[in-house]
């Protein structure tokens, strides 16, 4: 699989690939238990969230440390749509995407004027500030939050069909559709525009790309996808509350993006699986060695942090690019 070969991958090949992933998840969902299905759904949520960062940072070159807050907007929108309009679940997802994209467009207009540390600071303050105002509005349910109930799986799927398997199906389908769409938009003229923008703003402007509009568009699209991730997250935990969207969530998503390789969409699974698997690995290690609660608390953070530093040093463009460049030499 050298770089030369990959140029011949057509959309048909990609579609087969996506279908295969769907098939694998379908087969796995019939084998694994409830708990694994829940983890699988969480991986799918992270795939969507990390893809939104990769699109924004890896392709358009803007930084966001505040995607956790965008997830929160998506989650609250989905839940409110369900509570007040008793809409079917896919409409809840759609309104979540639209609403978050709208907020993203507004945030993007501010962001397009800013660069580097200013943008990092603004998005950081957004991540810290936004979830905390949920307490101000009684409609958002304060600290307890509001519930978001995706409903039981349809009876036609059989009586043994479990709740989390249903969530896994929905989340995987949503992740596959959004990934399909993202990889298409990244190869469209907008995606090419973003990449031109990232590598050299002046050159991009001279070749006819309107910088401001292109940046705002990237922020809008990225926010919309983050909104979908938020709605999916709310579905898997049945609830939306401010404490579900701490600053740590924003940092985890950025972390996942770096572990996946921030400049290519292809590695998006790596970061998502890592974010879900590391706490499990950590707890099994600490069980075996000492069983001390302290170690179990700190080990996940330590492993993720150490992995981050290692990734930044050893494979700054991500594991996939690293693999590719080694094989094309």
């Amino acid at each position: 699989m050298g770089a030369v070969h990959s140029r011949h991958i057509t959309n048909k090949h990609r579609f087969v690939g996506f279908a295969l992933i769907g098939l694998v998840v379908y087969i796995l969902s019939n084998i694994v238990d409830e708990w694994r299905a829940y983890q699988g759904a969480t991986v799918a949520v992270f795939v969507v969230a990390i893809a939104s960062i990769i699109l924004l940072t890896g392709y358009s070159g803007q930084i966001s440390l505040g995607h956790g807050a965008l997830l929160a907007i998506g989650a609250y929108t989905a839940a409110l749509t369900q509570i007040y309009f008793s809409a079917p679940i896919w409409i809840c997802f759609a309104t979540a995407v639209l609403m978050t994209a709208l907020v993203g467009a507004i945030l993007g207009m501010a962001a397009a004027r800013l660069s580097g540390p200013y943008l990092a600071g603004t998005t950081l303050a957004f991540a810290v500030g936004l979830p905390s105002i949920a307490n101000q509005f009684s409609i958002l349910g304060g600290e307890q939050g509001i519930s978001f109930d995706a409903g039981w799986p349809p009876l036609s799927l059989g009586e043994t069909f479990t709740q989390y398997k249903w969530f896994l199906w929905i989340a995987t389908l949503a992740a596959l559709i959004s990934m399909w769409w993202v990889q298409n938009i990244l190869r469209s003229r907008y995606g090419r525009g973003w990449r031109a923008l990232k590598s050299n703003e002046v050159a991009a402007e001279l070749s006819g790309i309107t910088i401001g509009r292109s940046k705002v568009l990237a922020f809008t699209v990225s926010a919309g996808i983050a909104g979908l991730a938020g709605a999916l997250l709310a579905m898997t935990v049945n609830n939306v509350s401010p404490s579900a969207f701490p600053l740590a969530l924003s940092f985890s998503i950025a972390t996942g993006a770096v572990l996946s390789g921030v400049s290519t969409l292809g590695g998006v699974m790596i970061g998502s699986v890592a974010l879900v698997a590391i706490p499990l690995i950590a707890s099994s290690i600490s069980d075996r060695w000492s069983g001390s609660e302290n170690l179990e608390l700190l080990l996940p953070e330590f492993i993720v942090s150490a992995l981050l530093v290692l990734t930044v040093f050893l494979a700054p463009k991500g594991p996939i690019e690293k693999f590719r460049s080694r094989h094309s030499k």
Partner: peptide, 16 residues
């Protein structure tokens, strides 16, 4: 202009 990776590196160091 490449400030994302150093940010992430310092976040990792903060975690460590």
């Amino acid at each position: 202009q490449e400030i994302f990776l150093p940010i992430i590196a310092t976040l990792g160091i903060l975690g460590i």
